[in-house]
């Protein structure tokens, strides 16, 4: 039984989350192939071939796949689908974008954001913003899945898979890339960081988010935000942690000036240790925090930075 895993990358680097999706794939079956679709993505191919447990890396290197447009990538995956029982991708924006398209073209259901594999056709996934956990059995012949990376450990990278170059190119021609406006940051990627410090509405403005910088630097942490902070324009939306933003599960999550709405908790409550700093002792965040500190963040943050 072969499994096709879509490799998440930016044409230069294989995303660490793909290693976690490979682990999920290996819980389903043993013959795992990685598909690298992109343009000038040779370095990604080299990294993909080293992922332990991957037997084959399929490479579609063409300008049509440079921005991994859903219309083109889904057509590519569809061509390959006949050889696979299971097709899966990481539940990041690229995977969420094209995988349902693949499922519909194959006329099968998709199971989104799985957090566990019970068997080759039965999967566990959160619903209602993580307030309920559903066990779902796929009744289709082919399984099409997206995987919540934070729920699986990363596969090792001491393998040596066979590399196969694909020649067929599909350009649907109904969409084109105009531009990217990416947030530049020297800090670790929010989804992969082992420590995350997040600010909420309590930060009051974007300028005050600088109070988190020094702490993040000392801890090697990524900086996140609640929806309130994003909506208020304090920080860009790709920093949002929650049901509709990023799902994180770091070793340590520090929530500063965040009340702890259901939608925010959905994105971080699987963190190993949660710290809450809030001046409102009634804030719901304290109900999930391992360590709570009732304090004004404008006093607490400089002190924390100084003492780390």
């Amino acid at each position: 039984m072969s499994i096709l895993v879509y490799a998440e990358h930016d044409n230069t680097e294989l995303k660490a989350d793909t290693l976690k999706t490979v682990t999920a794939a290996l819980k389903i079956g043993s013959d795992v192939h990685l598909l690298v679709a992109g343009a000038n993505c040779q370095s990604v191919v080299e990294q993909a071939a080293k992922v332990t447990g991957v037997t084959k890396v399929l490479v579609a290197d063409n300008a049509a796949y440079e921005h991994q447009l859903a219309e083109n990538v889904s057509a590519l995956v569809l061509e390959l689908a006949a050889d696979y029982d299971t097709i899966m991708a990481t539940a990041l924006t690229t995977g969420k974008n094209f995988v349902p398209r693949v499922a519909a073209l194959l006329d099968v259901a998709q199971i989104s954001d799985i957090i566990d594999v019970e068997s080759a056709d039965t999967f566990v996934r959160p619903i209602y913003a993580g307030n309920a956990i559903a066990t779902v059995k796929s009744l289709d012949v082919k399984k099409v899945l997206t995987v919540r990376a934070t729920a699986f450990d990363a596969a090792d990278t001491d393998g040596s898979a066979e590399v196969v170059t694909l020649s067929n190119v599909t350009d649907a021609g109904i969409s084109s890339h105009v531009k990217d406006e990416l947030t530049v940051s020297a800090r670790p990627d929010l989804g992969a960081a082992s420590i995350v410090i997040s600010g909420g509405r309590g930060m009051q403005n974007g300028e005050n988010f600088k109070l988190l910088d020094g702490i993040a630097d000392k801890l090697g942490a990524a900086i996140g935000a609640s929806r309130a902070a994003v909506d208020a324009g304090f920080v860009p939306n790709d920093m949002q942690v929650g049901q509709t933003g990023k799902i994180v599960a770091p070793d340590l999550y520090i929530a500063v000036g965040i009340s702890g709405a259901i939608q925010h908790l959905a994105g971080m409550k699987d963190s190993k240790v949660i710290v809450a700093i809030n001046k409102d002792p009634e804030a719901p965040i304290f109900q999930v925090a391992d360590y709570g500190l009732e304090a004004d963040l404008f006093d607490a943050l400089p002190e924390l930075e100084a003492k780390l």
């Binding site: 690229t94 109904i174 990217d180 406006e181 990416l182 947030t183 989804g191 860009p236």
Partner: peptide, 11 residues
């Protein structure tokens, strides 16, 4: 809204 920021497409 994509993982690293924003992306504009023409459809």
């Amino acid at each position: 809204e994509v993982d690293g920021g924003l992306q504009t497409l023409a459809l």
